[in-house]
Amino acid sequence: VHHSSLTPEQLISCIMHAEPPEIYLMEDLKRPFTEARMMMSLTKLANKELFFMISWAKKIPGFVELSLTYQMHQLESCWLDVLMLGLMWRSIDHPGKLIFSADLKLNREEGNCVKGIVIIFDKLLAATTRFRELNLQREEYVCLKAMILLNSNICSTSPEMAEDLESRGKLQLLLDSVTDALVWAISKQGLSFQLQSARLAHLLMLLSDIRHVSGKGMKHLSDMKNNNIVQVSDLLLEMLTNGS
């Protein structure tokens, strides 16, 4: 079935099935934490998650119909936003904690060992709190994550991409479909029309906060790598270098 003929409910069902599995660091982060150990654990997890993210993107209906150039640009533009939204979703029922994985749960004080990371932890915790206050639903979460992927590079100035009108059109249609799905997910909640609009606005506004934190995160990770505090694995290095 082509994605354009899917109902919002069917589209959400497909996006739900694309969700990555729960991930594990699979090793103990030894205490007391050190800057190098914590950064190594966080980047190791991020690298694992990147493989799952690419697999996830390929399962979003219509994504693989975009040109390879578009697929690469979308992923390199949004990967840290997607990782951060996933982190917020995992942490939503754990006030004050960031659930990086089932076996790596950190509070803000534990971030003190890494120079400059507490301010990022605080922003992540604040956005997570906002999602908790809004009682973010799983269907809304998966739509928001797909929207990050599809919207991440919509204002690209790359001539190569501007000329690829076919992919550009497909991308816009896909984004419209996921937006419809999000509107549908909100409409199921029995809210007044006015409250539905307000909820949609509140959820979408949080995406700009996530964009802001991911920019800080990219800068922080680049600095850590450039100062040789952490070694970054191949895929993560490629995404960091090309995405920033």
Binding site: S55, K58, T69, M72, E76, L235
Partner: peptide
């Protein structure tokens, strides 16, 4: 070509029909 060169791993993972997770 330069884009593909810059994105060697991502390009391979997207192009390959095998799941990226299995290729990891």
């Amino acid at each position: 070509t330069s884009l593909k060169e810059k994105h060697k791993i991502l390009h391979r993972l997207l192009q390959n029909s095998t799941s990226p997770v299995d290729l990891a």
